[in-house]
Design a protein around this nucleic acid. Structure first.
Length: 214
DNA sequence: TTGACGATGCCCT
DNA sequence: GGGCATCGTCAAA
């Protein structure tokens, strides 16, 4: 991953810019990849929904304080959730990857998801990690590309429209519950909790046939 | 096809 | 022992 990607970008800008980039992972001889279609920005100490709200710093969220380009993975109810760190060292801001569109190795992804098919393979933050067999905390604090987990920001699909909405699973946090800090590729079927009638299975919300970029 | 809810593992107090 | 940046199942339309 080219670290210039983060240059002069705040966390919200990074969250939008990540849409359409390619998330890749190599594990046990299997290669996995998918276009990022949904992200959420978490704005550090001031954000009531952030793991680092009011500067909270523990062994679990330590990677949030790493410099931009670092990986932050944590577990919830036995699932793994993947974040991109976006700001300078000791500024605990990041972006949660909430959905990807499978590009490479869909067959193995379905198997990893215990037979779940279609959009259910990768339309959620826990689901996409399970699909790619990403189930380790050992990459925490490492940089994308330094380990078999990477984000390709050059070979990318271009969203026709990017929409913003409130974040999912953030209840009772006042203004931070309402803020539009979730970003997604309009009409892409792999966006979590998108109403079926909004999905476009033909263009999937990309500007052009993104397969030609690959 | 959508919304409600219970299961579930682990970190933190 | 509480709480959680979730998921899959079930029931009703």
């Amino acid at each position: 991953m080219d670290m210039d990607f983060f240059k002069a970008k705040d966390t919200i800008t990074v969250a939008k810019a990540l849409l359409g980039t390619l998330l890749t992972y190599d594990h046990l001889g299997q290669q996995y990849a998918g276009y990022i279609v949904e992200t959420e920005a978490y704005l550090g100490q001031i954000d009531a929904a952030s793991h680092a709200f009011r500067g909270k710093r523990t062994v679990r969220n330590e990677a949030l304080f790493a410099p931009s380009g670092a990986i932050y993975i944590y577990q919830m109810r036995g699932l793994y959730l993947l974040n991109v760190i976006t700001a300078a060292k000791d500024t605990p801001e990041g972006v949660l990857i909430r959905g990807i569109e499978p590009v490479i190795n869909l067959t193995q992804m379905i198997e990893n998801r215990h037979g779940q098919k279609g959009i259910n393979v990768t339309n959620g933050p826990g689901k996409l990690c399970q699909a790619m067999a990403l189930h380790t905390l050992s990459y925490n604090g490492k940089r994308f590309g330094e380990v078999p987990l990477d984000i390709e920001v050059d070979h990318r699909a271009v969203p026709k429209t990017v929409l913003a909405a409130s974040r999912i699973g953030v209840p009772n946090k006042g203004e931070w519950t309402e803020k539009a800090l979730r970003f997604y590729v309009a009409h892409n079927p792999y966006v979590s909790k998108l109403p079926k009638k909004m999905m476009d299975f033909k263009t999937r919300g990309w500007q052009t046939d993104e397969s030609t970029n690959f």
